[in-house]
Design a protein around this nucleic acid. Structure first.
Lengths: 124, 124
DNA sequence: AGCTACTTGCAAATCATTCGCAGTTATGCT
DNA sequence: AGCATAACTGCGAATGATTTGCAAGTAGCT
């Protein structure tokens, strides 16, 4: 957390109430949140500002984002690459380590995003 | 192609001009197309109808769709699972076979979608 | 040829996300 | 502590992809 503050300040970004609120929301949860979900955890912060904060954090690699079901979901970056699998019935999210390195002919600088959808034990 | 017609008719769906035009557009190209791109290949068909056709085909598993860069891209289903890698500079798309089977604790019926973005040889 | 459920075109509605702008504020400087 | 100022925010309006409601049209049956 302190490290995040440092990163922001070092690059000339201010430590403002909306940004802190967004960070708090993301920290409190242990799963990726949509912008709307983050917003619901912040009192009195404008939705547009939530988006702006999330985009800033994304740009600074402080959060990772992935598309799921027509919306972007955001989670705090950790030092180990990881992905999520989402239960398509109840929305339960589980995290797992990413062990993959992709090599494809003709391409370099490959980034990958893996979207897994399944049905969890409870719903099955 | 004939097989697709059969599938439609068998389920009570009609073989209409917009649907045929969408199928033709998808067949002609060897890469996934956005709804808008499909639409540009069809003369005089309404955009909404293109979307409706694509959604129908998706429901019937005749086409696969994946999100790239804020829009859905569609391609005809083939019998072998495959993915695409997209060059983030020029948009060039290359196909590769999917060799993966995911096993994750607590989850069944796992479907995956892999989104690869990189830089192709030409742009590098 | 006629029936009818399935389809279409059109325009309006949605929904997530972004933008323009005028007013605010965090931070570095003195 | 007070100032200056670039970095922010809130608001409402704009955007852009996709969907929807509805009246009119049509494929495919008998």
């Amino acid at each position: 957390m302190e490290k995040i503050y440092e990163t922001l300040r070092k690059k000339g970004y201010k430590l403002t109430a909306p940004r802190l609120a967004v960070l708090k929301a993301l920290t409190k949860q242990h799963k990726p949140l949509s912008a709307q979900a983050v917003w619901q955890q912040t009192a009195g912060i404008n939705l547009a500002s939530v988006y702006r904060s999330l985009n800033l954090f994304k740009k600074l690699n402080l959060v990772n984002a992935e598309k799921f079901n027509n919306e972007e979901i955001y989670c705090l970056s950790t030092n180990h690459a990881h992905h999520h699998i989402i239960c398509e019935k109840c929305g339960y999210i589980q995290t797992f380590k990413c062990t993959h390195k992709f090599k494809i002919k003709n391409f370099t600088n490959i980034r990958h995003q893996l979207i897994l959808v399944g049905i969890c034990n409870k719903c099955n």
